[in-house]
């Protein structure tokens, strides 16, 4: 009997002693059913030249100034490309956390571009497990060159348009490393059919590796599929260093293209990286908060 009572007393006592830990466990167990979404798979909305899966959060406006110098192998006469400059001024805006639109003006072919971008699926873990983030991108580019009174015979306004559709699929493997693949379809209303087709496809691969909390290396490559055998164009490749300082992101890049719309950099890159047709350039972004941010992800 005594032993029996001692048993009960011990049991009761141990119950008290561990009560504190139990309270924490109780709270933890009541909190399952939570889903963590991967955030910031990439720092910005562009890897080097092309888009990332990232959209701007609701009410956020981003100004992007992108700049490419001439080719480094231009020699001292061209000051290694620094005498030339190709620019794109652009604005990206988050309508919702998952839907962004953007507008830009490019000096190459005096092109205006517009995009809509929608995040379809989000990488997550926890209650809901999903391995990657998927964003669909649609874009239109309108080239103003050649000038109206200077067009070749039969050239119509509609011929100035080109369209791009991309599926952007990315996975953040860990806080420092993300990768993305981008199947791409481009349609150009007018092409020289001796060297290229109206419909062109490419598959892109890109990634980001964080070196410190504020510095990351990025790279991207687009491989064109079913290329016309007379095509003078090359696949585009680029490497960048992202440096983040508060509301700014500076990106220093080297790439074999001067174009900043998909039509230009995926299908009309004329530089050969291995032969020194390399453009130094930079992207500078500045983010402004316009609407109130009550976003959850």
């Amino acid at each position: 009997m005594k032993r029996y009572l001692l048993g009960i007393a011990l049991l009761t006592f141990s119950g008290l002693a561990f009560a504190q830990e139990d309270l924490m466990k109780e709270l933890e167990s009541s909190q399952t059913g939570d889903t963590d979404y991967a955030f910031q798979t990439f720092k910005g909305t562009r890897i080097v030249n092309g888009h990332t899966v990232e959209t701007k959060p609701k009410g956020t406006l981003e100004f992007i100034f992108a700049h490419r110098f001439g080719e480094v192998n231009g020699g001292l006469y061209e000051l290694f490309g620094l005498d030339d400059a190709y620019v794109r001024y652009g604005l990206d805006y988050g309508i919702t956390d998952n839907l962004s639109v953007s507008y830009g003006r490019n000096s190459v072919d005096k092109t205006m571009d517009g995009y809509a971008k929608y995040k379809l699926l989000k990488q997550s873990k926890g209650a809901k497990n999903f391995p990657f983030t998927m964003t669909v991108l649609g874009g239109v580019a309108y080239r103003s060159s050649p000038k109206k009174d200077n067009v070749p015979a039969g050239f119509k306004t509609i011929d100035r348009f080109a369209y791009v559709t991309q599926l952007l699929v990315a996975r953040k493997f860990n806080p420092n490393f993300s990768m993305q693949v981008m199947p791409t379809f481009i349609h150009k209303n007018a092409v020289d059919q001796n060297i290229e087709d109206n419909d062109q496809m490419a598959i892109g691969v890109g990634g980001r590796l964080k070196v410190t909390k504020s510095v990351a290396l990025t790279s991207e490559y687009y491989y064109r599929l079913q290329v016309n055998e007379n095509s003078p164009y090359k696949n585009t490749f680029g490497i960048g260093v992202d440096i983040e300082t508060g509301g700014h992101v500076f990106q220093i890049v080297v790439t074999n293209t001067r174009g900043l719309t998909e039509r230009a950099f995926i299908t009309e890159t004329d530089g050969d990286f291995s032969e020194g047709d390399i453009h130094l350039g930079f992207n500078v972004t500045r983010t402004f908060q316009l609407g109130g941010n009550r976003s959850k992800n």
């Binding site: 009560a19 504190q20 309270l23 924490m24 709270l27 933890e28 909190q31 939570d34 963590d36 955030f39 701007k56 959060p57 609701k58 009410g59 956020t60 988050g94 509301g247 983010t287 908060q289 109130g292 941010n293 009550r294 976003s295 959850k296």
Partner: peptide, 17 residues
Amino acid sequence: ELVYIVKIKDFIFPKAL
């Protein structure tokens, strides 16, 4: 006894950045 758990991702700021 008092315990609480704060999920860091649930903090909401005036600016997304």
